[in-house]
Design a protein around this nucleic acid. Structure first.
Length: 729
DNA sequence: TTTACTTGAGTT
DNA sequence: ACTCAAGTAAAT
């Protein structure tokens, strides 16, 4: 027998490398980590294949130096998912494996959870009546009673007793009634499984019925406005999965994984919950990951990378806010957590739920093709009325720092009526431009094709594209004038205008600048929820915030940027924002109003949204994509390149195209410069590939990409491939 | 002549 | 990705 294995190692390798296993080491199985030499280095790699013949001469193979796991960390299902993703997104396989693992496992540390020491009841302790201690040692008696009821007490549980019970527990140990035992501590949240006080309505029941954990694969798209009870459907389905002893994987966008959501799951689900997100420490992350793998966790809630977590007894997958662009990784291993989760559910033969108030056009196309089943939720909880959307025509209107008089009047009305107002502007800072009033000079970033944003709070200029900051110039560097003026609108400026217009009602601004301190976003949202804050303004992060039951007016200060974005998905994003934002208005008994300020009230997208809502918009947008030959009607991939010189990316992409396999089924566009050509001192360009079918496009990429690295022009650029890009910039 | 930095090749 | 050897530019 050859004792050869294939190992996925980090590095630029499309395929795993072959290694020998010395006789002193056990032969590792697929899914086990090993330590291997590579050049001068020693790396952690993942075994992908059982012993097999090698395509390299045996005398050129080097031996592995250690086997790191007794049992495979990844089962066949997860391993093959990772390999599939590495091939589909054309990313090196070793990198794909390692990015799927928590940091500690990537570094070769043991796959073992944290250990907590708990007090456990002994056989003698079980026999002893607590009353016998009650006289001389009342605290011991209380603790013994608790131990008899709960079997063991964790350090966290001790907080439930008066004072510090550790001394009394020590005494119980000395009496032989309790003992200290080390147990694995996965840091799980213990769900309480409380019943809901709201019964599901007919629409929710229909959707929930379609989700049958353990009954085979089915993709259920739950399409419901905010407040229509999507989460109730998830909870119902998860509870049924739990009742069958099956695990549920819940994937949410980073911003959606709020303590509020976790608390709601904890309250309602009768199971153990693991949470996986980027804010965790390495140890916590490892614990949660292992809890999923061993089946200790019944429910795993996580962000993007949770799509790869191994599950011992999978029964259901839920993807919340499935349209959210953050489910697609935007650099490196550019996978879509949503698409992989759907594939995973298909392979596991389990149901998957996609939820959104504004489903992606991709998912709606899948509904149209009969692959997904769509369930619409139209009733809002507590029969709140849908908000009235109106367009505020800005043409010719006098404005005070972006606020038109009708909008100011409207805010007044709502504040006087006891309501809250929520204002959106997707631009931080005071103004997106600083201009010289004498000569027209603009404060431009010298590393990007972009202007500096003026931040008045910090008294500085800040480039939002490369993060460069400069102090504010006192006079114009071109003509010396001191008359430098802010041009355009940012959230700081709106804040100032609101302060002037509503001196009695101090506005609170919520954007990345105002919430930099840890936990301050949560604090501000809590203040708003209590009603302490009546006037809120912020960027998109406000739209994905929390339930604010007293909000009666929501305003979008400037819809025009979304109407004319460079990306073909810009209209879709605007529509999603409008609907999401509208969902914030009038959730309780009061009905809500949505005001959209625009210079283009006749724009078909806005008209469509107002008269037909998101469904009408989506239908029109799909037809448009079909006509234009864009996703989801056709498959797309982008080859990007960037370099410090303008020429290098173009030269590389031209050479790349010249050597590309020809296939009439694959259309090629470009090379053309990226919409913002220079960013952080680098020029960017791209080639777009499109095809009616995925297969020919995939086939072409597989043939083509390995050759690109060998082009002489490739050495002058950084290049990458993006399959199913979320953004074309 | 020494030293610092760029460029190209190779990793099983 | 990372590391090394060979080559080139500037410091001594």
């Amino acid at each position: 027998m050859t004792r050869t294995i294939r190992v996925a190692v980090p590095g630029p390798f499309t395929e795993p490398l072959d290694y020998l296993v010395p006789s002193r080491l056990p032969l590792p199985r697929r899914g086990v980590r090993v330590r291997v030499p590579l050049g001068r280095r020693e790396l952690v790699g993942m075994v992908t294949a059982a012993p097999s013949g090698s395509n390299l001469a045996a005398d050129r193979l080097r031996p592995i130096t250690a086997v790191l796991d007794d049992e495979p960390l990844l089962d066949e299902e997860t391993s093959s998912l990772i390999e599939w993703a590495a091939h589909y997104y054309h990313h090196p396989v070793g990198d794909a494996y390692l990015t799927a693992l928590p940091a500690r496992l990537r570094q070769g540390q043991a796959a073992a959870p944290a250990i907590a020491t708990v007090w456990t009841i002994t056989a003698e302790g079980r026999e002893t009546a607590p009353e016998s201690l009650a006289r001389q040692a009342p605290r011991q008696a209380v603790l013994l009673e608790a131990l008899q009821a709960e079997e063991h007490l964790s350090p966290a549980r001790l907080a439930g007793f008066d004072g510090d019970p550790r001394g009394a527990l020590q005494r119980l140990v000395e009496r032989g009634l309790a003992s200290l035992t080390p147990v694995p501590d996965y840091g799980l949240i213990i769900g309480r499984g409380e019943e809901s006080n709201l019964a599901l309505n007919d629409e929710q029941i229909a959707a929930a019925r379609a989700i049958q954990p353990g009954e085979g694969h089915e993709v259920v798209l739950v399409d419901g406005v905010t407040g229509s009870g999507k989460t109730e459907i998830y909870l119902d389905a998860i509870a049924r999965s739990l009742a069958q002893g099956l695990q549920t994987l819940v994937i949410v966008p980073e911003i959606g994984l709020t303590p509020q959501l976790v608390r709601r799951f904890q309250r309602r689900l009768p199971g153990r919950i693991a949470v996986l997100h980027s804010g965790l420490g390495d140890g916590e992350r490892l614990n949660a990951w292992l809890a999923a793998r061993t089946g200790e966790a019944d429910v795993v809630i996580g962000t993007r990378s949770a799509a790869f977590v191994p599950l011992r007894r999978p029964g259901l997958i839920v993807i919340d806010e499935e349209h959210d662009a953050s489910l697609k990784q935007q650099e490196g291993f550019r996978y879509s957590a949503r698409d992989l989760a759907v594939l995973r559910a298909h392979r596991l033969d389990i149901p998957v739920v996609l939820g959104s108030a504004t489903p992606s056009l991709e998912s709606l196309e899948n509904v149209r093709r009969g692959r997904y089943t769509r369930y619409r939720l139209c009733q809002r909880a507590g029969d709140a009325r849908p908000p009235v959307i109106q367009l505020l025509d800005m043409r010719g209107q006098p404005t005070r720092d972006g606020l038109s008089q009708p909008l100011i009047d409207q805010i007044h009305r709502h504040l006087e009526g006891g309501g809250q107002a929520l204002l959106f502007l997707n631009r931080r800072g005071f103004s997106p431009t600083l201009i010289c009033h004498e000569c027209g000079w603009l404060a431009e970033c010298d590393r990007c094709d972009a202007r500096y944003t003026y931040h008045r709070g910090r008294g500085r200029l800040h480039c939002h594209h490369c993060d460069r900051e400069r102090s504010l110039p006192h006079h114009c560097p071109s003509c010396g004038s001191v008359d430098l003026r802010p041009l355009g609108l940012g959230t700081e400026r709106i804040e100032t205008a609101l302060q002037a217009a509503f001196p009695e009602t101090p506005p609170v601004r919520i954007d990345r600048d105002s919430t930099r301190r840890r936990g301050s976003f949560e604090r501000q949202m809590e203040a708003a929820r209590r009603g302490d804050t009546r006037l809120l303004l912020g960027t998109q992060m406000l739209a994905k915030g929390h339930h604010l039951p007293a909000v009666t007016l929501v305003a979008i200060i400037d819809a025009d940027q979304g109407l004319f974005g460079a990306d073909f998905r810009a209209p879709e994003r605007l529509a999603q924002l409008v609907v999401q934002v509208a969902g914030r208005a009038g959730r309780a008994e009061r009905s809500g109003e949505v005001a959209i300020q625009t210079h283009h009230p006749e724009h078909p997208l806005l008209q469509m949204l107002i008269h037909g809502g998101y469904p009408a918009f989506a239908e029109a947008a799909l037809a448009e994509r079909e006509a234009a030959g864009l996703p989801p009607a056709r498959a797309m991939a982008l080859l990007r390149a960037e370099a410090p010189s303008r020429e290098a990316p173009q030269a590389f992409l031209k050479a790349a195209l010249a050597g590309a396999p020809r296939d009439p089924r694959v259309e090629r566009l470009g090379p053309y410069p990226a919409p913002m050509e220079r960013r952080a001192g680098r020029y960017r360009a791209q080639v777009m590939l499109q095809s009616d079918l995925r297969a020919p496009l995939q086939h072409l990429l597989t043939q083509w990409l390995p050759r690109l690295g060998r082009l002489p022009e490739a050495r002058r650029v950084r290049w990458s491939i993006d399959v199913d890009p979320a953004e074309t910039l």
